[in-house]
C-alpha cells in the first residue's frame, strides 16, 4: 500500500492552453510580420499615380475577353454577341457582374 499516484501526466487543459496559445502566437506573429513589413501606402500611392498618368479605368485582372478586361467600358451586349440566349463561355466572366449603367438611349413610339 505504498504505491504512489502517477504525477507526470499533462492535463488536457494544459495541452489545450499550449496548443491554442502557440497557434495564437503564430497568428499574431504572421499578422505582425505582414502588417508591419508592408509598405502598403507607398505602393498604393505609386500605383495610383500610374493610374492617374495613364488615365486607366479598370483592373488588369481578367485579360481573357474584352468585357472582362474592362467590364465597365464594354458594350453591354458583348457577353451575348453570339446571340441573346448564348451561354457565357469565358470562365472569369462568371466572377464579375455586368455593369449597371444602362446605355443612354431610349425607345420612342410616335403616332403618325
Amino acid at each position: 500500500m505504498t504505491a504512489r499516484a502517477p504525477s507526470g501526466r499533462l492535463r488536457g487543459s494544459t495541452v489545450t492552453a499550449i496548443v491554442f496559445g502557440g497557434l495564437l502566437l503564430l497568428a499574431a506573429g504572421l499578422g505582425a510580420v505582414s502588417l508591419i513589413g508592408a509598405d502598403t501606402a507607398g505602393r498604393r500611392d505609386r500605383a495610383a499615380a500610374l493610374v492617374a498618368e495613364l488615365a486607366l479605368s479598370d483592373l488588369a485582372l481578367f485579360t481573357e475577353a474584352r468585357y472582362t478586361r474592362n467590364p465597365a467600358l464594354a458594350d453591354l451586349h458583348t457577353p451575348f454577341q453570339d446571340g441573346p440566349a448564348s451561354l457565357e463561355h469565358f470562365p472569369t466572366a462568371s466572377l464579375i457582374v455586368a455593369p449597371r449603367g444602362l446605355p443612354a438611349g431610349r425607345l420612342e413610339a410616335r403616332e403618325e
Partner: peptide, 17 residues
C-alpha cells in the same frame, strides 16, 4: 487524483490505474 489512486490501490489495482 491522489484520492482516486488510493481507492484503486486499496482494491489492489494500483498497477492497473
Amino acid at each position: 487524483v491522489e484520492r482516486a489512486f488510493a481507492l484503486l490501490d486499496h482494491f489492489g489495482l494500483a498497477d492497473r490505474a
